[in-house]
Design a protein around this nucleic acid. Structure first.
Length: 271
DNA sequence: CTTTACGCCTGACGGC
DNA sequence: TGCCGTCAGGCGTAAA
């Protein structure tokens, strides 16, 4: 499932191949993603050059002179560059035909993903306007987490996964970051001390940095734009390891659902 | 305001 | 072997 490192890896791989290129034609085989792909996405993209490929949370933002395409990979989506004419599979829902004979191919078996068009500034788009700070921005730090969490009774893991708290931290990395910071995922967010939030913010940044450097996690569906798997999976310390031994203290890792999400933690290392 | 549950969808997996 | 039920998972939305 594409998390932020996978999306950022995709962005970095695609950027040099897309920016400056003209989109000649957009072929929508199946518009039924999470929301229908709007017809104006096609008309706004065709005939214009892509000027920028950005990212906000897990949304990829492909801009041209007319506006911006918002692309979300959901939990099974991928973007690849293919040679134009390469046969499309059953889940290859959209191709952007580029002037250089390649096509940007969007595949998403479960169709939880998104491809929308935004005419104006993207920071005013309803899907983006209420997002919290990017994890690598200066405004994301322990004090922000601490101040924002006061009075909150929800689990710190749910708090961390709320996009208004910090953008783009999904289930896998929430589990990992809480382990690194030694914080029990079910602890009420308002009962985590300032110093521990400082550790948590550092852990989030460190883990995301390492995962991006490894090309993403490559759990289950995710593959890179070249079809190769990411390499961070072997570095996951708790996710998907319930019942196994904690790498630090060898205690059996615990697992249960918190906030409708599978959660794993070490009962000794995390308090 | 906060918190919780739901639903979209398919592939993987386990039981028979 | 094959069929079927169950479940995960991002995240917006509705409901409490």
């Amino acid at each position: 499932m594409p998390e932020l490192p996978e999306v950022e890896t995709t962005r970095r791989e695609l950027e040099p191949r897309l920016v400056g290129r003209r989109v000649d034609r957009v072929l929508v085989r199946n518009p039924r993603l999470r929301w229908p792909i709007p017809p104006e996405l096609v008309s706004r993209l065709e005939g214009r050059r892509i000027l920028r490929l950005g990212r906000r949370a897990k949304y990829l933002l492909a801009s041209n002179a007319a506006g911006t395409a918002l692309i979300h990979l959901g939990m099974s989506g991928s973007l690849r560059l293919v040679a134009m004419g390469e046969e499309a599979g059953p889940h290859d829902h959209v191709d952007w035909h580029l002037e250089d004979g390649q096509a940007l191919r969007y595949r998403d078996p479960r169709r939880f993903g998104t491809m929308l068009w935004c005419d104006g500034p993207t920071d005013r788009h309803p899907l983006l306007s209420r997002l919290g700070p990017e994890p690598f921005s200066d405004s994301f730090h322990g004090n922000w987490l601490y101040e924002r969490s006061r009075g909150r009774r929800a689990a710190v893991k749910s708090f961390l996964m709320d996009g208004r708290t910090v953008a783009g931290v999904g289930n896998i990395y929430a589990n990992e970051a809480l382990f690194h910071a030694g914080i029990h995922p079910a602890r009420p967010a308002g009962r985590v001390a300032r110093a521990r939030y400082h550790r948590l913010a550092c852990a989030v940044r460190r883990i995301l940095t390492h995962s991006i450097g490894s090309g993403g996690t490559s759990l289950r569906d995710y593959v890179r734009t070249d079809g190769e798997p990411g390499r961070y999976q072997g570095r996951l310390l708790v996710y998907d390891r319930a019942g196994e031994a904690c790498v630090r203290c060898r205690a059996a890792l615990r697992g249960r659902t918190i906030g409708q999400r599978s959660t794993v933690w070490c009962p000794l290392c995390q308090r």
